[in-house]
């Protein structure tokens, strides 16, 4: 462990309609402290100086809830690959470094306050079709439905998406294709998802378009920045699913 001092250049914005600006703060931390704990230290300083602390989303701090966001030095979830902001430790940065911290920037994710954005659009896309229409109580025995391990594992990889929005933040078009394709893929790969396969692809894509997300131009930034390493091949599958569904309209 080594002590270190960093300058945090943080986006401050009082509300959705207010004008925002960067403000720089100096914080003493150490290499074994996480990035969010460093923000905690900064907030403690601000509170002790009777200043308004920085609002940011976070919850589980284990990289699974998808609540934390932050665009750090130009990368969603910062410089580490395959990790969320809450799993980022200060040993990734240099002593004395100035670190730029911004909220997700996308038309579909308006800023609520400081670094906190509204990701309700993701919920709305899921509500449009991200499920198997099935009522509790009517299921057959689970082992009556053998599923090939290969498909089950692939479905699991797609289902690993934590819905954080890094893909949208990383995309120059603000596209939500990686997020949507992960859910569509999970069900397309499993027998349970077959009955509503076409309806699902149509409904989720339609909702995504309605909510102001951009189009996919295959730059691959989403895959590179995804904290759960969701593959861009999911997008290829979504395109196939969508075209097949539209052709059968």
């Amino acid at each position: 462990m080594a002590n270190m001092t960093v300058n945090l250049k943080v986006w401050r914005q009082a509300g959705p309609k207010e004008k925002g600006e960067f403000r720089t703060y100096t914080v003493e931390t150490d290499t074994d402290t996480s990035f969010l704990e460093t923000l905690d230290i900064l907030n403690e300083q601000l509170v002790n100086n009777h200043e308004e602390p920085i609002a940011f989303d976070h919850d589980c701090r284990e990289g699974i809830c998808g609540m934390c966001s932050l665009y750090i030095n130009g990368h969603p979830h910062g410089p580490a690959t395959g990790a969320t902001t809450c799993q980022l430790y200060m040993r990734r940065f240099k002593d004395g470094e100035t670190i730029t911290v911004e909220p997700w920037r996308s038309a579909a994710f308006p800023v609520i306050k400081d670094l906190m954005v509204n990701r309700n659009a993701f919920d709305q896309i899921q509500q449009a079709g991200g499920y198997v229409s099935f009522n509790c109580g009517g299921a057959q025995d689970a082992n009556c439905l053998p599923i090939s391990k290969v498909n089950a594992d692939m479905a699991m990889d797609s289902a690993t998406c934590i819905g954080c929005g890094a893909c949208v933040a990383a995309c120059k078009n603000g596209s939500a294709m990686l997020f949507v394709s992960a859910k569509v893929s999970q069900f397309a790969l499993l027998p349970q998802g077959q009955v509503e396969r076409k309806r699902r692809a149509r409904a989720m894509v339609k909702k995504m378009d309605e909510l102001g997300f951009g189009n996919c131009t295959n730059t691959g930034a989403c895959e590179a920045e995804c904290p759960k390493c969701i593959k861009i091949s999911n997008i290829a599958r979504l395109n196939r699913e969508f075209i097949k569904a539209k052709c059968s309209d």
């Binding site: 499920y131 198997v132 099935f134 509790c136 109580g137 009517g138 299921a139 057959q140 025995d141 689970a142 082992n143 439905l145 053998p146 599923i147 090939s148 391990k149 089950a152 594992d153 479905a155 699991m156 289902a159 999970q186 069900f187 499993l190 349970q192 998802g193």
Partner: peptide, 22 residues
């Protein structure tokens, strides 16, 4: 036991053996 049936029906991708069973 009902819970496992319910979750599989929802499309929860539980770990499986090569034979396709849970």
């Amino acid at each position: 036991n009902n819970i496992i049936d319910q979750c599989v029906a929802q499309g929860v991708p539980f770990a499986r053996e090569y034979g396709g069973l849970l």
